[in-house]
Structure formats: C-alpha cells, structure tokens
Design a protein around this nucleic acid. Structure first.
Lengths: 286, 286
DNA sequence: ATGATCTATCGCTTTTATCGATGGTATCCA
DNA sequence: TGGATACCATCGATAAAAGCGATAGATCAT
C-alpha cells in the first residue's frame, strides 16, 4: 500500500533525476526520500531506479509506472482543488435553466471565463419554459434561470432584467398569411396559433380557438415550418436554425423586444459561481 | 494530505452508508473508520457526512468529492495492477512490426483476449517490410514481427511459420497487360515492375531495368492503380482497399501462397505477453 | 589529492494509525 | 414500556512508521 507522499517523492525524483533534489524541493531530508523510494519499490515489487550510476536512472519498468503514479497524483490534486473550492463555499455544480427565448451567445462568451475561475465546477444546462423553468428554480433543481419576463413571480423567486431578446411572428412561406404585405392583428385570429405550453399544471393555456402547442420554441418552429400556423419565435432562433423556411409577418409593432429575466430562488440562493455569473449577466448589457 | 487508506474508507463508507459496515469489509475497527473520516474532513476542510440521522448520509459536497476520491482510488488500482504485472515479469509494452503482406484479421481476433489477459499492456503496431522489419526486431524496438519468409535471417533472429498469405500480380485495367487473357512470365519483363524497397542500406534492390519502388505495399498498390506498372500485392489488401481499380494478371502459378513468418530476437526475447501471442499465432492455423 | 555532491544506512524522536473499551442514541420488537 | 441491537463518537494505550540528523562510501570535477 504505497502512500501518496511516497508517490510524490517518486515522481519528483524521477523528474529531476536525483533524490537529493527531490528532497530539497519537497522540503524533506535526503534520507527520507531514499527510504521512501526504497519502501515503495518493496511495496510495488518492482525496482524503479537503477542505482549503479552516480545518479539514479529510471528502469524501463519505473518509467512505465511513473505514468501511473502521475495519474494518481493528478487525481489527488483534483480532489484537493475540489475540496478547497467547496471549503471556500463554492457550489459543486451550477445548473442553469434556459428558455429558448434566450440567445446563448452571451452565455457562451462567459463560459470560458467561468471555467477558468471555477475549474472544479460542474456546469449543467436544462431547457424549460416559463412555469416549468420557475419550478426548476423553486425546487432547487436549477440555481439560475433565463426566461422571458413573466406576468407573475412566486414570492420566493427573485429576478433581474438582462439583455432583451427580439421576438417575431413567423409563418411558412406556404401559409396563407405569407402573401400579405401588411397584416392587421385581427387577421391573426383567423388562423391557427402555435403557442408554448408547459407541463406544469395549474396554468391553463389561455386558449382561444384550438391552438397547437409545444413545450419548446424549437418544436414550435418546426410546427411553423410545417405550415400548421403562425408562431411567435425568437428571431435569433429562426435565423440560426430556421434556414430560409420561415417568413416574418409584417405586423405593426413587430418584431418586438422581449425582456429576458434572470431568476433565482431566495430560499436556495446560488453559490459564488452562480452569483458571479448573475452579476456578469445583468451588469453590462450591450 | 489525505492518505489513500482514508479515501478508501470514505468510499467504502459512502457506498454502504455505514461506518461500521465499511470497517467490517476492510478489516478495521469501527473507531478507526470514524477517526479516519473525521481526519479526512479536517484535511479537506469539508464536512462529508451529515451525522444527524442514525446513519451517516453524504452531504452534497461529500457526494461531489466522492467521485474525486473514487478517481484517486481507480488510478491507484491501475498503478498496483501494473506493478503486479511488471513484478510477474510482464513486459510493459509490446511492439509489433507488421508487413503489409500480413492480413490483420487473425491478429485482430486475438487482441481482445490479449487485452483481457494483460490489461496493463501497452500495444504498439509498427509498419515495416523485410529488412526494415528485421532491423526493428534486432534493435529491440519491436519484439515480434510478421514478414514474408526471407531468404536469409540474421543469426540472432528466430522465426516460425504462421498462416500464409496469398499474393497476386496486379495491374490497372488501363495497363497494356490488362488486355491479355493469358500471359507468359517473359512478357512481364517488357513492362515496368513496381517493387518493394527498404530504407535499410546494404541490400541493393535486384534491379532489372528501371523498376519503380516504394517502401510499403499500400504505396505500391496506389502506383499500380495509377497504371505505372505491374506489382505483386497481397490479395487481401487489393480486395479490401483496392476497390475495383486493379486487375489480377492470369500468369501460370499465380496467385501464389506466400509463407508469413513471425520473427523475434534471440538476444531480446519477447516477454510473457509476446510469447503468449507468438504461440497463438503459430499453433493453430486455419 | 581534494572538495563537492550523490546515495544508503543507522539510531533516535515524533507522529500517527489502530485497537479495545465505554457511553450516548436511534430503531425494532415483544 | 423495556430490552436488545444496532449505530457513532470519544478516550487512552500501544505499536508502527515516518521523519530527521549523522555518518560512510562512491563518483565527478577541479
């Protein structure tokens, strides 16, 4: 059962080619290194160094086991760093709940800096809309959420505005509405609407006529591409993934800017990494 | 600096949800486990278990660090297994030198069993022909080689026959020889031959006329596909990678069977894994 | 030859790992 | 409501080992 310290001495000695040098670098006495490596060789049943020369030189077997020892040390370093982060109050994982309305560009720009600042953080992205998303936040399943501004927030949910997202009304070019060069709002009611729904019970979709609905904007967009009706969609989503198969309706007042809120739970506030991300998302908006 | 044993106790306790159970399984006393985990928590600065209930239950931080601890133990297990293998005389790596004449099917069939039998073995495949390959074996760079039978082997090279490989004479369909329904050997001399060459000096290519040559059958095949001459190629290579761009010449006595030898050095004999593979390659031939 | 710089080894001290015993507490069953 | 049975934390005591300094032998450069 080789000890971690013995492995560290082994790696250091192999790296510098001398036991004394390893002892100096690790703040131990030379005899300690000599004895520790001798013990390690007994434990492993393998001669690691050829000591016939003035300086010890790794045997082929030692060279092979050196790679294994370095892996052990690397794993232990990760453990220690993760523990140090947790001890400093860092959350072990940060779960984000994203609405399709949120364009991911700004988040992606921050991810590399987030990874550098919290190297042991596990980042998770969930997709949900409105009520589903708030439920994720409220239950603690996710710590931060990005949604279009809701008409009502539960008392435990805190929110702050972030960069807005542009929304447009889209139909397939084959759709009857696609021909008109100008459309009045009343005309929309004559055609099928494609709306967001949520799996969350309680909030009945305010249906007028028989709308079609889907739980994500991506599915709504595919329905619109199928020509089944008109849908309000994030412009960035259509531009990025819609190809040229959708057409924006020229209604007065459209496309409109939709306020995107970042939301979190007051009872289960996000940890340092979440707060850091939160500040970055709300502070400077382009 | 957490010790390996403490990590093992931690993982075992977390896996079974009880310190006593971990103590029983690892043959330690209950107090040892209790103290070791308490020390570990101090070392890491993180509370791993919530002890308010009857049985200790992992904290979120503990659950996160558990994954790290398991990685450390896994790395240490690999180290110990590798050391045990080396102590048993296993070679740390096995390098094979393969000729293009050798069809890799039989070798591939044995690789999974080899990996199961020697899990810590690093396997390496080199490509070389005739003299180059023998040089790899003789220098110790590779331990086993598979070549067409050579007219002469150096004294330190041992060899044994293995499954033969079928060789054919091929040309591009655009080549003049491709039209004939029967060819006499003398006709070949009238056209350019594509032959193997080696980077090894000393053995001058027995050139008659100005042959073209390349150091691998794969390059020879591509030359033949270009219509630059005729080449003797392994049938399996043409069938597998040649597409339909090559045509076999109908010479009497062709295609012929080429004896494939497995060769190794007498001065640097292969280790147990190499010997095991050697026996499997020579014993039962289909 | 000489000084410098290695490594191996030998006592000695200090640390720590481990054990058994003890006490407190929760769970289950009669 | 007890009693039995688990479980965990804590406390000395002891044995193991980790570490250090000193020393001796070996090698290299000057």
């Amino acid at each position: 059962m080789p000890s971690i310290e013995a492995l560290r001495l082994f790696v250091e000695a192999a790296a510098h080619g001398a036991f004394s040098e390893a002892a100096r670098r690790l703040g131990k006495s030379q005899s300690t290194v000599s004895a520790a490596i001798a013990n390690l060789e007994v434990d492993l049943g393998v001669v690691l160094f050829d000591r016939s020369a003035r300086l010890p030189v790794l045997t082929p077997a030692g060279r092979h086991l050196l790679a294994n020892a370095e892996q052990v040390l690397a794993a232990q370093d990760r453990l220690l760093r993760a523990a140090a982060g947790l001890a400093a109050g860092h959350e072990p994982r940060l779960s984000l709940a994203l609405s399709d309305t949120y364009q991911p560009e700004r988040l992606e720009a921050l991810q590399s800096e987030l990874a550098a600042r919290y190297p042991e953080l596990a980042l998770e992205c969930l997709i949900a809309e409105s009520d589903d998303l708030l439920a994720l936040i409220d239950s603690g399943r996710a710590q931060l959420g990005f949604v279009e501004r809701q008409p009502y927030y539960p008392p435990d949910i805190e929110y702050a505005a972030t960069a807005p997202s542009q929304m447009g009304l889209y139909v397939s070019p084959r759709h009857p509405l696609a021909q008109n060069s100008r459309i009045e709002p009343a005309q929309l009611d004559a055609h099928r609407a494609l709306r967001l729904t949520t799996v969350q019970a309680g909030t009945a979709p305010r249906a007028r006529g028989h709308n079609w609905s889907a739980p994500s904007y991506l599915m709504l967009m595919e329905m619109a591409q199928g020509g089944f009706g008109w849908a309000e969609l994030p412009c960035w989503l259509v531009e990025r993934y819609g190809g040229n198969t959708l057409q924006m309706l020229p209604l007065p007042g459209w496309p409109r800017l939709l306020t995107i809120d970042v939301v979190w739970s007051r009872r289960r506030p996000p940890g340092p990494a979440g707060v850091w991300l939160l500040e970055r998302m709300t502070d400077s908006r382009p």
